[in-house]
Nucleic acid binder design. Structure first.
Lengths: 155, 155
DNA sequence: TCTAATACCATGTTATCCCATGCAATCCCG
DNA sequence: CGGGATTGCATGGGATAACATGGTATTAGA
């Protein structure tokens, strides 16, 4: 089980600490850096986050992206520059830096939103609104997903 | 037998636990994650469920969609963020989280409905009604199914 | 020495594990 | 072919451990 699934809402204490959901920590086990890497999403008022290994792959693919579009390469660069390493404390908590919390509008509670290979951190209310919008968009567009053949390796 | 077939109605105890039908558990044997993954259907008042391997393929398929596209974000949010990993206890039971039970209107009993590669979890009464409607629709339309040639991979 | 960040410890609640029970279908033996 | 024994499966409850969360101590840096 190496996927980030489901959504968890945890409390942010007055020191800025939040527990990372246990199942997310399990998905991150066995990595060199004990913690997560987070950066502001450029599309949503939220944070994108993942483990160190995923971030390494992302930086490696910078060169490939440059071949296709300058825009995407710029975005990827911004991710790396804006990202922060957030180590776990002994109890699996991280401290949300003020700049990141501000970008996501996080104050009392933080919603950890699984996205498979990565996850997001939202203000719970903002995420609830986005979720509703996504649902109505998918219903209206009738979006479907073509399942890739089994056995293939991840991109 | 690697297919989910037939329909089983099991009781939900006051802790929210339900036995997953033995034949469904058999179809899930040999997976890395011992349990099921369930998320709300956006077409029915029911839950969609499958094993971890299927969900991994789903996540990889989402990766194939253009990164940062609206469609990818919406589908990922609904399927991955809305899903929950429900591990089996020693007796092959899962606990239905309140949010999922509410979406499907499940209280006392849960109907496990085989759908081949996946299965659904319904409120038994709601499913009985849906089944009747489906039957009359099929009869009226004279729906037929074209078998795919043997030997191909699963959709 | 003062402030701030980190590590450590304590607590309540929730979920997970483990054992016990009853039913029913199956198998085996007569 | 019939009856009894056995096993598998669904269900219930109580004990245990994990987790989220709050607070205190300790260390580093200014």
């Amino acid at each position: 089980m190496a996927l980030f699934l489901s959504t968890y809402v945890n409390k942010v204490d007055k020191k800025g600490r939040v527990s990372v959901p246990a199942s997310f920590r399990a998905a991150l086990s066995g990595q060199s850096f004990i913690g997560i890497i987070a950066f502001p999403s450029h599309k949503f008022p939220a944070l994108e986050a993942c483990g160190a290994d995923r971030m390494e792959r992302l930086s490696q693919s910078l060169d490939d992206l440059a071949l296709f579009s300058q825009e995407q390469a710029d975005l990827a660069t911004l991710m790396l520059a804006g990202s922060q390493q957030l180590p776990f404390d002994g109890d699996g908590r991280i401290v949300l830096p003020g700049s990141l919390a501000k970008h996501a509008g996080i104050t009392e509670h933080a919603a950890f939103v699984g996205h498979g290979q990565m996850f997001q951190i939202w203000n719970p209310d903002a995420f609830a609104r986005f979720e509703e919008e996504a649902l109505s968009r998918v219903k209206r567009a009738g979006a479907t997903l073509r399942l890739r053949p089994p056995g293939g390796t991840t991109s």
